[in-house]
Design a protein around this nucleic acid. Structure first.
Lengths: 171, 171
DNA sequence: GTTGTTGCAAATTGTTTGCACTGGT
DNA sequence: ACCAGTGCAAACAATTTGCAACAAC
């Protein structure tokens, strides 16, 4: 899969992140382990939004003994900690990325090619206010990716025979 | 599952819809069948947003010989036709509803209880314009449900031990 | 030495597909 | 009578879970 956006995310020194996470985990009576380090490294090396599949692949490239289920559990633990965030994509898959320094922000995914990109942090603020005042609904704009067509895909003839790059993200 | 919103959707005479769909299908060389009628009836009788599971249950209540896979295929065919629309929910499930007369509109789902509600049709118009002009991203606001906390759930003590009504909609 | 984590395999959940047969038209 | 659509069982994909062995503290 290839959900990597062109957008650059500031690469924080990975060792630093790992050290901080290790400390934080120990403070909670939990432990820093091989799989967790590998997952953090994988996420740190790619500025994009990775599916579990991506992470499994990246981790396997370094240490093939790490099992899929450990990747799931590591991601869960790291989300719990707050260093990693997840976004729900259209087809039920979930993408993960290190919590960026700029703070939480919404995402958009292209229905055709599946690319996920970051959106400006305050894009949905007005909408959130409307929802809160009118409907008493508290919006979490960062949690689910907005859906639509990216620039590249909308330039392609829309009526052309569907040529999905990522079949699983279409419907 | 229980994704039914309080919102009322105008109930169109079901027989009318079925007749129209039958005609439309025949015009395309396709056919009106038992399972398709049952699915339409199920969707017509419930103003809410039904998961496949809901539809299967509703259909089974009338005709237990209808198979799950037929429900999936019927829903797909009816979406293709345009009488039925689908929304992607947070956890990878998909909800279906008859295309409402008011036209397409965005949806919001509560992360805690899973309820899906309709949102005002033009809620995201400004956002769509921003995305189009600034990022050349063509938003499809109706396709994925926004995520957040509904009124009822935000009144509940947020820090209370999580009491998910719908486990599969949480994470 | 504890006990939180892992690897593995098996169970779950949600959806799709191949195929012989049925039932709309 | 034709062939789109169905029922079924089996395949698939993504994720979760029980458990014995392991390793971080």
């Amino acid at each position: 899969m290839d959900i990597h956006p062109g957008a650059a995310r500031p690469t924080v020194a990975n060792a630093e992140v790992i050290a901080w996470v290790a400390k934080e985990l120990r403070a909670r009576g939990e432990r820093m382990t091989g799989p967790r380090t590998a997952v953090l490294t994988a996420l740190g090396e790619d500025p994009g939004h990775l599916t579990v599949e991506d992470v499994v692949a990246a981790v396997a490239a370094v240490d093939s003994s790490v099992h899929r289920s450990s990747v799931y559990r590591a991601l869960e633990a790291l989300c719990e900690l707050g260093v990693v965030q997840h976004i729900h994509l259209s087809h039920g898959t979930t993408a993960y990325h290190l919590s960026s320094i700029e703070g939480p922000h919404p995402h958009a995914q292209c229905v055709r090619c599946g690319v996920v990109r970051d959106l400006p942090p305050h894009l949905l603020d007005d909408v959130a206010v409307h929802l809160a005042t009118d409907l008493r609904f508290t919006l979490d704009a960062t949690h689910v990716a907005l859906s639509g067509l990216c620039a590249a895909c909308s330039e392609t003839d829309a009526s052309s025979p569907e040529t999905p790059i990522i079949a699983t993200h279409l419907h």
